[in-house]
Structures are given as structure tokens and as C-alpha cells.
Write a protein that binds this DNA or RNA. Structure first.
Lengths: 242, 242
DNA sequence: GTAGCACCTATAGCACTGTTATATGAACCA
DNA sequence: TGGTTCATATAACAGTGCTATAGGTGCTAC
């Protein structure tokens, strides 16, 4: 058996590579840095992983199984649509938690490296969608739905990763999520909003808004503000300018 | 002046780099390959571009302006929603035409390298969406709509690039496109498009009015009144719930 | 002219990268 | 004991991005 007090060189290499890859902000990490951090010399790296890329693939595979475990860990709530939301959010969260890993997994697409990774994410999402289909909630095939959802999910996550953490607006995620889900599945409640024939004129828009405000008062304005607002709206609506 | 029979070394470097980058399937391209192909020695590369990355940035910038030119070249049909479809498709097509360039432009995100690129694509899309808003077709602000659309557009394009050209299913693009568009805009052709979570048409009308007011300022309100009015309008336009 | 001056390019080399041929040590089985 | 196999180390290779230095080139000023 091996010593238990210290992990084997192979594990140390994996750990060191993952750590350096996560710290070093996207810039390349050299094999020498890795082997040095793992207190190992070059040949052991090539003995175990064959290649620098082999080592990195192993790191990615590890992170990916972590991702899949997290996905599988999400409980099936019995409400398929709600499950879809959870999986979407979990995907985004994983990307934000491991940005560099995520970029390699989903952003750095070399056409032949990808399948084993993304394909299985796609397959898993397809399972979830199959349950939705079984509940008669899907309007397209689970396969198509999975591809579309995953594509949008990746796009959103990449965009969120790219912008500074402080300025991140998760509303983008929620909004796009609902967009894709509602196109792929039927939500129980339909809301047909009849909209007046859209014309670009200020007056028409003002009239439409005025009419809309009669039935539903927004809570973003206080009552006194709303009163003045409506008065101005009335004035704008009164005469044609544009 | 310079000889006209042959392009200057700087141009030759750009061309050689672009060509090699496009051929060599995503694998790294060395400066020596580039300088040799351009029949130039190393220092001229560093004189003109300072850096290998500087050269690659120049290549990307060139491709990017080509992309933006193509986007700008699309005519405004007068039907804003149809324009959105065209821009989406044009984006995807550009990605499929220049896959390696596209991966660098939108996939290979180094948080600080990105803004100048994606941000301007986002800004342009926002312009198009502003026109849709002016036609009272948007249910969210042009900015939010642009981000969501672009994110989904990128995700779809990356996914299409990643899979073998033969098996590419463009239905994925069309499907996701319609999903995002229908979540962001209302189709006026009497289509019972369901909006998410019962967004009241107040928001639609407010956004439309806001957009209309950008181009024509009514004389019924004083400038100070208008300022406050627009502020309130902005508040109404931003959705409250999730 | 020719001296000066920017600009552009080339020679030769550095430090570093990924990688490997070879050799050494350790563990197991005979 | 000796042999076989696995795991690690020494030392070096070719190739990489990059640059200190120097040599042209064309231009303007005198």
C-alpha cells in the first residue's frame, strides 16, 4: 500500500494543476510551475498524464464530474418546469464559482475535445426534459429542447463570467431562462395581452400608456407622483407633434 | 512612397496571421510561422504590433469590423421584429463562416480583453432594439433585451460551431431565436404570444413612449417637466417582480 | 551634395516552454 | 537471489515569444 500521510504524486499533480489554473487568471500555466508546486519532476507528469493537455483534461474531467454530481444532486420536485429552472440556475452558479474551469469546459471549444464533456451535460438535461415531456409540458422534443436550453444557458453564463463580478446582473439569467423555457414548454397559465396596433408616434404611445394605467396602477410611483404623471401624459396625448 | 506591387510588411503580417489562424485548426500559431509566411523577420512583427497578442488583436479587430459592417449593411426593413431575426441569423452565419475568429471574439473571454469587442456588438444590437422599442414592440428595456439576445445568440453559435458541419441543425438557431425574441418583444400580428408572468401592458406602453420621446421632444412640457417625466417613465418601464 | 533624422528591417541571441532519451530507485514475484 | 514492472529523477532537446543591437532606407535642411 501507499503512504496515507501524503497524497500520491498523481493526485498532487492534479491538485496543483487545478489550483494554479484557477489562480492564474486565464494566463497559461507552465508544466514547470505545476511540477514544482507538486514537488515532482517533469517525467512523472508525462508518465501519468502523457501530455500537458492530458493533465488539463483530467482537471477538467474532475471539475466536470463535480458539475454533474451537483446537477444530479438536485431533487426532482415533481414540478418539471420548476426543475428546469433549478438546473439552469445551478449551471450558471457553477460557472460563476469556477470561471476558469468553465471557460475551458464550455468556452474553449476544440471541435474534437468537446463531445465527452458537453454532450453528457446535454444528455443529462435531456433526461430532465424527458420528465417534463412525460408531464405533457413540452412543445418540442426533449432533444431539441435540451440543445436550445443548454446553448442559451452557456451563452448567458459566459456573458456573466465576462463582466466584473460587482456589476453582474443576474436578471439577465432569469430573463433568458424564462424566455427559453416558455418557448420550449407550456406553462399552465396563459396570459394573452392584447396590444393596440403599434405605431411609433409619441401620441399613440402616450394614449396607450394612459389607457393601460387606468386598469393597473404601478407601484413604482407614489400617488401624488402618479397624479402629476397622468396629467402630463394627458397633455402629451392631447395634440399631435410627431 | 512605397511600392504598390506588393503590400507593406505590416499588411502582409496581418494577412499571413489571419490565414494561418484560420487554417491551423485552433492549434496555436507561432510567430515564426507567421513571419516566415509574411517573408519578414521577427523584429518587424514586434515593431508594428508590439506583441504576438497585439498582432492577434489586430486580426480580431479586422474580423470584428467586418462583422459590424455586415451587421450595419443589413437594411432596416421597417419591421423591427423581422430585423431582429435578420441580425440574429447574420450573427450565426458570421460565426459559421469564420469559426476560429469567432471563438477568439466571443468564446475566448479574458475579462479585460473583451469589452471593446462584445460591448460594441451589444451596443449595436441595442440600437436595433431601440427601433423595435420605438415601434412599441418591446416589453423590456432595449439594454436588457440586447444582452439577453446576444447571450443566447453567442451560445447558439458556439454550439453550432462545435458540432461537425455535416450534422449542423440550424433549427436550433431558429428555435432559440424565436424563444428570445418572443420573450423580449410582442408580435403585433395578433399573435397570442404569452408574456412571462403577466407583464402588464403598462410596461409595454411605457417603454414604447420612452423610445418615442428619444427622437421627438414634445413642446407641451417644459424641459424641467420633461426631465422628471422621463425619470418616472424610466421607473415604470423597469419591471418590478422577477 | 551630405548631414542629420526618423522610420523600418535584419542578425543573433536570451530565457523559457513542452517534451523525452536515459538512468535510477523501489516493489513484487520467481 | 535475480528479473520484471512501475514510478521517479537527471539532463538535454527543439521550438517558443521576445529583444538588444545594428544596419539600411527615405526624407528634409543646409
Amino acid at each position: 500500500m501507499k503512504k496515507v500521510g501524503e497524497p500520491a504524486p498523481k493526485a498532487r499533480l492534479l491538485k496543483a494543476a487545478a489550483a494554479l489554473l484557477a489562480e492564474s487568471n486565464g494566463e497559461p500555466v507552465s508544466t514547470r510551475q505545476i511540477t514544482q508546486a507538486a514537488r515532482v519532476t517533469a517525467p512523472t507528469l508525462y508518465h501519468h498524464f502523457g501530455d500537458k493537455e492530458g493533465l488539463f483534461d483530467a482537471v477538467v474531467a474532475e471539475g466536470f464530474s463535480e458539475y454533474l454530481d451537483a446537477e444530479r444532486g438536485l431533487p426532482a420536485s415533481g414540478q418539471p418546469i420548476e426543475d428546469l429552472r433549478n438546473h439552469w440556475d445551478n449551471h450558471v452558479q457553477f460557472g460563476l464559482d469556477h470561471p476558469h474551469l468553465y471557460l475551458v469546459m464550455f468556452g474553449n471549444i476544440r471541435p474534437e475535445r468537446r463531445p465527452s464533456m458537453v454532450a453528457s451535460a446535454e444528455a443529462f438535461l435531456e433526461e430532465v426534459l424527458a420528465r417534463a415531456a412525460a408531464a405533457a409540458r413540452l412543445v418540442v422534443s426533449p432533444r431539441e429542447a435540451a440543445r436550445s436550453m443548454l446553448a442559451a444557458n452557456i451563452g448567458v453564463t459566459l456573458m456573466l463570467i465576462a463582466e466584473p463580478a460587482a456589476k453582474r446582473n443576474l436578471e439577465l439569467s432569469a430573463m433568458t431562462r424564462e424566455a427559453v423555457i416558455s418557448a420550449v414548454a407550456t406553462d399552465s397559465e396563459g396570459d394573452p395581452t392584447t396590444q393596440t396596433e403599434g405605431t411609433p408616434s409619441v401620441v399613440v404611445a402616450a394614449i396607450a400608456l394612459n389607457a393601460a394605467l387606468q386598469s393597473s396602477h404601478p407601484d413604482q410611483l407614489s400617488s401624488s407622483e402618479l397624479k402629476l404623471f397622468l396629467e402630463w401624459l394627458q397633455r402629451i396625448s392631447s395634440r399631435s407633434g410627431s
